[in-house]
Design a binder for these strands. Structure first.
Ligand SMILES: [Mn+2]
Ligand SMILES: [Mn+2]
Ligand SMILES: [Zn+2]
Ligand SMILES: [Zn+2]
Lengths: 120, 120
DNA sequence: AAAAATAATAGTAATCATTACTATTTATTT
DNA sequence: AAATAAATAGTAATGATTACTATTATTTTT
């Protein structure tokens, strides 16, 4: 993977926020630095970065959002404002499903859906 | 909501399987009973049935899959064959996130991703 | 049972996010 | 500086889903 100003900008943008942005959000932000950057470039780089395990993809309904936090963690999703927030809960179901279902678990995705603290 | 043969067929199809089918899978199956049923009809009814809480929608990556099991449960997703299987795990994080984040949890979506028992 | 009212359908067009394509540009190696 | 090939911009294509509309089917009213 060769250096490019576009990729560098995309990485910086993702690392600068905790909102788990969409490709389009990243694209609009990137255009402030590189006005003629292409949306295809954003998608191509996001895919590349995911393959290289530098970011991860979260499917929020039907749109993809991107996460620079590569530690194991879960999410709170607010039904009202749509925000997605990190939290880390303690659990271990991998051994359970191995024993009960002979299922080899690689990862566990957990999203808690409800109303966030802003709406009180 | 008025009766229709199309909706009845769609409900029957969903209740007849545990595979969490996609709209297109349901459509192809429905055509065996109603050859000129429209894909739009399938989507319209699936949306209606979800609103009436008769089925639920699971977003599997970028495609929607439908679930007739309305009990609270979790899923095992196999990376190899793509199968989605029900299981019910015991946990309670709703009180935790209320206390720690002042977040009112309505539901928790948990998917355990890995390799299912078929591939041993 | 026929007429009126209106929900639901079939078929097709439109939308939206994402991916594919390709000529050109840019980074890296020689 | 020239050669090599990865990355880009711009645009076309794709695939899932939704919107639209004239027609059909179900339910209600007479
Ligand atoms: Mn996160
Ligand atoms: Mn299920
Ligand atoms: Zn909120
Ligand atoms: Zn499998």
């Amino acid at each position: 993977m060769r250096f490019s100003q576009q990729r560098e900008t995309i990485i910086n943008i993702i690392h600068s926020t905790k909102i788990h942005p969409t490709a389009d959000w990243i694209y609009r932000k990137a255009k402030k630095y590189i006005p003629n950057i292409s949306l295809g470039t954003v998608y191509r780089n996001l895919k590349q970065l995911e393959q290289d395990q530098l970011i991860s993809t979260i499917f929020d309904g039907s749109v993809a959002r991107f996460d620079s936090n590569m530690e194991r963690h879960d999410h709170l999703k607010c039904k009202i404002c749509g925000s997605l927030t990190d939290l880390t809960l303690d659990y271990d179901f991998k051994s359970t499903v191995k024993q009960k279902f002979n299922f080899i678990a690689d990862e566990i995705e957990m999203t808690i859906i409800g109303t966030c603290s802003k709406h009180n």
